[in-house]
Design a protein around this nucleic acid. Structure first.
Lengths: 173, 173
DNA sequence: ACGAAGTTTCAGTAACTACTGAAAGTAGAT
DNA sequence: ATCTACTTTCAGTAGTTACTGAAACTTCGT
């Protein structure tokens, strides 16, 4: 970050921009990551128009990404009495945020991958030639590993933050 | 997978294709994921030309992605005596594969993210108004969480496979 | 020092993903 | 039933990333 970012808004802008870059590397659309960063560090819930204005993006873009974030469970819709429009507020608890991201990625990406692995394993289970044996062995090991990891992530995700930390401390200690 | 994939090559083709799709969702270029899947399930090391032919891709594309995979430590170059060309072989041990992916992602993506978080935290540490306090608190929590996770991943990555499994079993048990 | 076999680079292009802006849709207020 | 404030959709376009194919480069054998 350049040194002249001495105002809150300067630092925040830098954070939002960088979070977008980081998100993009993880296969998340940049705007979505930026909106998330913005709401995560907002003191109050924001409207679509405020998000549009801050990030200088179109209504359609703001709308789509806000709704996607709601779909991920990372932000929620707030309605204020007397106000007709919707406001958006981020889940601010970091542990909860982590759990939701993990749960969604598992559902959307790990589970289908496991499905593929299982099918490939079953289809080659009883093949006899060398290449098939190599293939079957490799796929089996991969499947065992991924499904083990998947179970672990369920287990960790079901812990309270405090318990998870304690457990992790034992691991690190 | 469609039911008519009854030959090894049919199943393998399906696996390679699917692995490409999964990789893409994780921010990895599709061809790279496909080459990895191909080499991972190969009985023998393969040459650039064999990879090109199998995936029906250009030499430039094959070359770039093979070299990127070498950069990730997921495949290695093999030279056969009497042969002038290079062959490529995947790291087949799944635990080792996992460790290398984790280590690289940490280096390339987590460490820079932490750097950003630290800068943002430091820059707002002594600001007094409400918005700055909210920002500082949120960034701090995020930084603590990410750096904790990063340490955990180092710790787990330094374990032997057997030990990791034992530890995980305790967790699951 | 030349030719053959293989590797690397890169300009141009194709394919894909994200974004805009405007139009259509919805729902509370009068 | 009409107006107004807001939300949703989407066709077209901009921007980005990935891929090709060919030329340049390297290395080894003769």
């Amino acid at each position: 970050m350049s040194d002249e970012c001495v105002t809150l808004e300067g630092v925040r802008e830098e954070f939002v921009a960088q979070w977008g870059v980081i998100g993009a590397q993880w296969g998340i659309n940049r705007t979505m990551a930026q909106i998330h960063a913005l709401l995560l560090t907002a003191a109050e819930a924001m409207s679509t128009d405020e998000v549009m204005e801050y990030l200088e993006i179109s209504r359609g873009n703001a709308h789509t990404n806000l709704k996607d974030l709601v779909g991920w469970g990372l932000i929620r819709i707030i309605t204020k009495k007397g106000e007709r429009k919707e406001f958006f507020e981020a889940e601010k608890n970091v542990w909860e945020m982590f759990r939701r991201i993990t749960r969604e990625r598992k559902r959307r990406e790990i589970d289908p991958a496991l499905e593929t692995l299982r099918k490939c394993r079953d289809a080659t289970k009883s093949m006899k030639d060398r290449d098939a044996k190599v293939f079957y062995k490799q796929i089996s090991e991969l499947e065992d590993f991924v499904s083990f990891g998947s179970k672990m992530s369920d287990r960790v995700g079901s812990l309270q933050h405090g318990k998870a930390i304690k457990l992790a401390m034992k691991l690190l200690g």
